[in-house]
């Protein structure tokens, strides 16, 4: 499961603007003690060690350990109920929003333990953004306001700065050309695929390092799905992407690494196998993985 050290610099993006990231500075998950951050090294590496997640007394995932490399796409696949979404939500501490939910084990983002008592989950979520299964733009807001919602909800920003963020975020989300003339229209006036790209733009506008995607294309038609997949391929140059998908073809198409989860006898999900995507799909080491990727497993 060891993974090579990833490229140290994000590949240059087509946009000349150096970054969508505004305001927030480099050591952004910095603890309150301002521990020095290794920000020159590849940023956005997630190391998960012996992670278990609980809902009350029910253990939903059991002792998952894996290293998610930066600036690559890591797919999480597996049957329903195996804890894929739960795992994803532990990575930005959305899991603990469910009453009674908790985790054991360690998750480190660029060497910082994100479950450390000194870490503010609200700040963590600005660094580890999330896109949901169902596109969920804010219905009372325009396209423009949706993109900058994360910034407005987290502080004051001058209008000129916001204009730039909107354009760069929408360009990165491959939506700019379709909406640049109607930024004041309602976010929910867009098509389903456009709404999902709007949600991606909204997540990018906050300036994350990691982007979590929970079945981002499962509610979309094939053409909209293709656009999202192309977008993911472009975004991985700048972001660490973790995508949960039910669709094995999709995992094979978009991801660099694949983690296969399944459900144990105790109904807890666990990691069966993790490795480079081509190997997982062509030459899996585990019987369970082989059965699943070849469709013999339900």
């Amino acid at each position: 499961m060891a993974v090579d050290t990833a490229p140290t610099e994000p590949a240059p993006t087509p946009t000349p603007a150096p970054d969508v990231r505004p305001a927030v500075t480099v050591g952004r998950v910095a603890t309150r003690t301002d521990r020095p951050m290794p920000d020159a090294a590849a940023s956005g590496r997630l190391e998960v060690g012996a992670l278990s997640a609980y809902y009350g007394t029910f253990r939903a995932i059991r002792e998952v350990s894996l290293d998610i490399p930066p600036h690559a796409v890591t797919a999480i696949i597996g049957p329903s109920g195996c804890g894929k979404s739960t795992f994803l939500r532990t990575l930005n501490r959305m899991h603990e929003l469910v009453p009674g939910a908790r985790v054991e084990g360690k998750i480190r983002l660029d060497e910082v333990d994100i479950y450390d008592a000194a870490i503010d989950p609200v700040r963590l979520r600005r660094v580890v953004g999330m896109v949901f299964q169902r596109a969920n733009p804010f219905p009372t807001m325009s396209i423009y306001d949706n993109v900058v919602a994360g910034l407005r909800l987290t502080g004051r920003h001058p209008r000129a700065e916001l204009d730039g963020v909107v354009e760069r975020s929408l360009q990165r989300a491959a939506l700019w050309n379709e909406v640049k003339d109607k930024l004041q229209d309602s976010g929910v006036s867009l098509s389903g695929g456009q709404q999902q790209r709007l949600c991606i733009a909204r997540a990018l506008a906050v300036g994350p390092e990691v982007l979590l995607m929970d079945e981002p294309a499962s509610a979309l038609d094939p053409i909209a799905t293709l656009r999202i997949e192309e977008l993911i391929a472009e975004l991985k140059a700048s972001y660490t992407i973790v995508i949960v998908t039910h669709n094995m073809q999709q995992a094979a198409r978009v991801s660099d690494q694949t983690a296969f989860f399944t459900m144990g006898d105790d109904r807890a999900g666990y990691l069966v196998e993790f490795g480079d995507t081509p190997r997982i799909f062509t030459n899996p080491r585990e019987r369970l993985t082989e059965d699943y990727v070849s469709g013999r497993f339900g």
Binding site: N92, M94, L97, V122, R123, L124, R125, R126, V127, G129, M130, F132, R134, N136, P137, F138, P139, A149, G150, L153, T154, C199, R202, A203, V206
Partner: peptide
């Protein structure tokens, strides 16, 4: 989902 969308953007609960 709207609450989750907002919290996932790093908005505090009261702003959400």
């Amino acid at each position: 989902d709207l609450r989750e969308a907002s919290l996932a953007l790093g908005a505090p609960v009261w702003r959400t």
